[in-house]
Amino acid sequence: MSETTAVAPTPTTGRNSFPSPYEQAPPAGAEGWKDLYSYSLVFQDDRREVEEAKFWFCDSQHWPTVTKPFETIGFEFAVGCLGQYNARQLLIPTANGIEYRIHNGYVFMSPVAVDPAHIEARVPEFMQRAGHYFENWDSLLENWHTKLRGTIDEIEGLDFTALPDMIPIDDVLGGKGTGPATELLENYDRLISLAYRAWQYHFEFLNLGYVAYLDLFMFCKQLFPRIPDQAIATMVQGVDMELFRPDDELKKLAKIAVRDGLTDLFGDTSDAEGTLAAIVAHPAGAAWKTAWDEAQDPWFNFTTGNGFYAHDQYWRDVPAIPLGFIKGYIEKLQQGADIDR
């Protein structure tokens, strides 16, 4: 049940399989790690027979490092919403969702299949529900954008002002009866609720998009059996996707820097403040700085990680990160490379 290591049968296990989490000792210094997480998130001894009968894998693609206790809310929301769409919203014929556990701090998952006796009955339900989305894709996607942007606006409207040393006298004399901690906790709860709603919206179109791509993939393989998988993937690279927009903004800024003769100012982009100050002071730096400012919101709300960890850094907070990428694109342009998708 680790990522890559299979083991030979042993006198105790009598099987040829991935190691069982029940047989893996914690790393030195991590003893007692289970106490950090809730009961439902870890493998329990009284469920060993049930748990070992399932196929568990480490989801190192989405959660490549140890997940700290509060960060588990991310995959709990994600997997819960995935299961909702698979099992109840779209009724995908063969998939219900995923079970999850924490093992030695890492996220492990196990797919939940549909009872074969129920697959046939789910097919017409799936066809009606998924078919409606494919037939009305543009209008439903526009509605999705409206819903998601509304959720983002609600999140950005939340206020987490530091608590004062003294409650305002007007609140006391007016008999308000509550302190600012009440609003702070209400906003915190609201933030958690909005995060869950955003995860639901995330899965509204995600798996349908995968279905559409799989359909294209199989169609191409039938017509052109020798076509490389990468060639099929390249077909959709030209699609105008918002996911690519942050990187496109960096390429745009690199081109402006080359055009306006600013390339020498990107020598040490780790000094973001100094680099930006030098560009602002340059006679030809105004156009670049305007483009930089315009890209900040929303395109620099982007992380070098995946957004699932508290230690992930975001471009808006750490400008040295996008400046470093821009420097790399400048060097490619100077070498005559084509940096466009």
Rank of each mutant, 00 (worst) to 15 (best):
A291L: 08
L206K: 13
F219D: 14
I192K: 15
E249W: 06
K68G: 10
N16D: 12
F70I: 09
D159R: 12
A278F: 04
Q230S: 14
T94E: 09
K252F: 12
R88D: 13
L184G: 07
E156Y: 06
S40G: 07
F219V: 13
I232C: 04
R149L: 12
E120Q: 13
L82N: 01
T182Q: 14
I155W: 00
I232A: 04
M241E: 11
V114D: 03
C58E: 13
G238M: 06
H202Y: 13
Y22T: 03
P116S: 00
T146Y: 14
V280D: 15
L223R: 10
F203P: 03
I279W: 03
T5F: 14
D338V: 03
I339P: 03
G209Y: 06
T4G: 15
P298H: 03
T263W: 02
D215P: 03
T275D: 00
L333E: 00
I92K: 02
K332R: 10
K54N: 02
T161Y: 11
S270G: 09
M127W: 11
G83F: 02
D215H: 08
H282S: 02
L323M: 01
I92L: 09
A30C: 15
L185Y: 10
G328V: 01
T12S: 14
R129F: 04
H62Q: 10
K252Y: 12
P26Q: 04
D264V: 09
H311P: 05
E154W: 04
D240S: 11
R48S: 10
G274S: 08
A212R: 06
I326Y: 00
F302C: 07
T178S: 13
E51S: 05
A195K: 08
E204D: 10
E52W: 04
G157K: 12
G324V: 01
T13K: 04
E294V: 01
P9Y: 02
T65L: 09
K54R: 04
F57G: 10
F219S: 12
G328K: 02
K327Y: 04
Q200S: 13
Y188L: 11
G14T: 00
I73T: 01
D264G: 11
Q61I: 09
R15T: 02
A195P: 05
Q313L: 07
G305I: 01
T67I: 08
I98L: 14
I330H: 00
E31I: 00
D297K: 08
D165T: 09
A6E: 15
S193V: 12
Y196W: 14
Y188D: 13
Y22N: 01
N96W: 08
E125W: 11
D312R: 00
Q335H: 15
F57K: 07
D215N: 05
D170Y: 11
E273A: 08
E52C: 05
P164M: 05
A231C: 13
N96S: 10
Y133I: 07
D165F: 14
R259I: 09
D271C: 04
E249S: 08
S139H: 06
L90A: 04
E242W: 15
G328F: 00
E31A: 03
Y201R: 13
A286G: 06
Q230D: 14
E142F: 05
S17K: 11
R341M: 10
E99H: 07
A291P: 04
F18I: 10
E154V: 03
T161V: 09
R316Y: 06
V280K: 15
T94Y: 08
T304K: 05
P164S: 08
D159Y: 12
A28Q: 06
V107C: 00
A278P: 01
D46F: 09
Y100I: 04
V280Q: 15
V172T: 05
E31D: 05
